[in-house]
Design a protein around this nucleic acid. Sequence first.
DNA 1: GCATTTACTAAACAGTGTTTATTATATTCA
DNA 2: TGAATATAATAAACACTGTTTAGTAAATGC
Lengths: 204, 204
Amino acid sequence: MAIKERKEREKQEMRNLIIESATQLFLKQGYDKTSIRIIADDIEYSPATIYLYFKDKDEIFYVIHENAFDILDKELRKHDVIADPFERLAALGRTYMQFGIQNPDYYDLMFIMRAPMQQIRNEEKWKAGECAFGYLISTLEACLEQDRIRKADLHVTAIQVWSFVHGLVSLYVRERMCILMMPDDATREMLYNSFDLFLANLKK
Amino acid sequence: MAIKERKEREKQEMRNLIIESATQLFLKQGYDKTSIRIIADDIEYSPATIYLYFKDKDEIFYVIHENAFDILDKELRKHDVIADPFERLAALGRTYMQFGIQNPDYYDLMFIMRAPMQQIRNEEKWKAGECAFGYLISTLEACLEQDRIRKADLHVTAIQVWSFVHGLVSLYVRERMCILMMPDDATREMLYNSFDLFLANLKK
DNA sequence: GCATTTACTAAACAGTGTTTATTATATTCA
DNA sequence: TGAATATAATAAACACTGTTTAGTAAATGC
């Protein structure tokens, strides 16, 4: 029966339609203002219909969270061409920071908000996060092999790098960098300088 | 007229009653589940009454946010007795991390949630944050004077230290450290080890 | 052509923050 | 002391939210 396949295809198309609408609304107006009713209005269906395709609001935003990781992963893997592992590490960090600063709502969903992680508890594993973290790990492994960074436990070093850039980006996107009382562009520059200094301290 | 003073006192007492109830509910059940109606129920007044004492829900949580900073400040200033500035810096960092890990909801309000910062936009300055940050700055200043840490711009160094510990704590409280697939207590220990390593790299 | 499955939705439920109109109490002043 | 005023508190409503239920209309299977 080809009908079954068509129906499956239509179901997937409807899911895509919902995700596309939700993503566009989310990036324009943020999480809180992207209500089920507003998404329903946008795709010209009733709110109840959305619940035929997604368990709840969190599931919709979990998919958006996964899509955001795909985008970040692609940006990070571009640096595969950089042969020198330390230079690659530097590029990774800068790209990560740039992604967070330029896509604060995606960054929120990926690394700050609680909602998407509750979805994960049931599935045991945070696949999207592990993929990006794995790339950091392998880059640091290469750095250690070539004796380019201070010797330390691989996982501890990875956590150090990630925590540092996440600290910079998350304090910035959640408006805590206002203590510097600097214009926004100067603050952003300081963030990148801060990362450069961090790398210098990590270097052997 | 002493009546005016009594009224003012009563007004302040009512505000305290609301804050105490809200704080207790917030620490027990989190921000989202602490609704105006539930607070009203708890203090045995109508929801509308709360709006005679606070502009909106955000103002209540802004006060809680300030109180949380008072608690953290007191904990940090305890280390005033440590004469060696580098040792003091180490103690500050550990106490900051401990505070965040042991009071995740307070930490949320202070350094992660958007709500309290919107209150600040109107008042221009983030007094609570500046107080704690100022203490970090002065400690780092002493470290630099005594040539105990790598020479760098004071503010950049401060941002580095703060971002690093904030990165560790916020990834932990927002459940992103699950990528390590370690038991919770082992993860926490790794966080402290990571900070120790960071200090070692900062040291001259 | 009829029975069944599928797709969809109107309406309701239980909650949210906040405002308005009204009532009861306390204070002021003649 | 008694009438006028100011203050304190609230019931009810408004405009939302996520989600569920019951019912309808169309597509599919036989």
